[in-house]
Amino acid sequence: MTSQSPPGRPLEELRYALAEADAHTPPVALRPRVIQAAETARPPGLAAGTESAITPVEGYRRTMLSFDAVLSELSEDEWHTPVLRDLDIQGLVGHLIGVERQLHSALGIGPDMVTDADHVESTQADALAQAGRTTSDTHAEWLDLSAVTVAHTSVLDRDGLERLITMHHFTTTVERMLVIRSFESWTHEEDIRRATGRPLAAPDSARLRLMTEIAVSALPAGLAMIDRPKPNRTARIVLTGPGGGTWQASLDRGIPGETDVRIIADAVSFCRMVANRMAPDDIDAVVTGDEALAADVLAGAQALALD
């Protein structure tokens, strides 16, 4: 039998159930007063318990440290565990080496390369090239390239961070690209954790907030990718847990209107879905409003995954 209210303090439950008999309609002015007082005490939009905001560069640095920590734990055998597509972990790190090289090229700090190419295909040579190397060489090269990215971007001024760069068929600012790279690296860290039987690890709440923000802002792009544009439609996205938040999101990059659908989901699960590591049906979302629209929004979010 399921319980409506656990019987931990049944007399207290009874006492306040009985007190409903004294319910009295409060003055009309109290409602806006309470809401205003609440919003003054804590601004809406940001989930409680989220650490202070960090820059995308700091988010990228933390993600690289976390990824490096997992790689440092791996035994030689574990490095050769199949993890994704046809890659073992060493091959996956090779893929990330390829992505990092392309990022350097796009940033103007590495050799010229074609960066506007398919995310997986264009890095497959780097992935396969690891087969003849020691795992420590693969690890060291990835770490060195990542450290160069952090060192370069951490001294960029505002113009530099907002400069548009193109990689893997999309153009965005350097800052947003760093968040996308963090998202991908966290996803692959979890791939490695899954493959080697390690517990999954959510990003810290400040990093997660960067990821949830970029995921929600990219929903119109995701809907376009699955060819289901939603002009003049608005979704209210509520992502729970530290690092989450609430967004009144226009689904066509316009001005948000009245809510057509509200989707409530755990922030980490939502990000795993955006990374195509969870199916929309598995994230236990609570939907109110236009359910068909919700299904498209979640499918669009999942289509944002790079690989």
């Binding site: 306040y16 007190a19 409903e20 004294d22 319910a23 009295h24 309609t25 409060p26 109290l30 409602r31 309470v34 809401i35 609440a38 919003e39 804590r42 601004p43 809406p44 939009g45 940001l46 989930a47 409680a48 318990g49 209210r236 509520v238 992502l239 729970t240 847990g241 989450g244 938040g245 609430t246 409530i264 922030a267 609570v286």
Partner: peptide, 30 residues
């Protein structure tokens, strides 16, 4: 869920909680 929405910064949740519980709380406090 209502409180999880509240925690997620959903200001509509505080309005819903007000509508659901303010008469009870106001009556009790009075």
């Amino acid at each position: 869920l209502l409180v999880a929405r509240l925690a997620a910064g959903d200001e509509e949740a505080i309005a819903e909680i007000f509508d659901r519980y303010a008469p009870f709380l106001y009556g009790l406090a009075r």
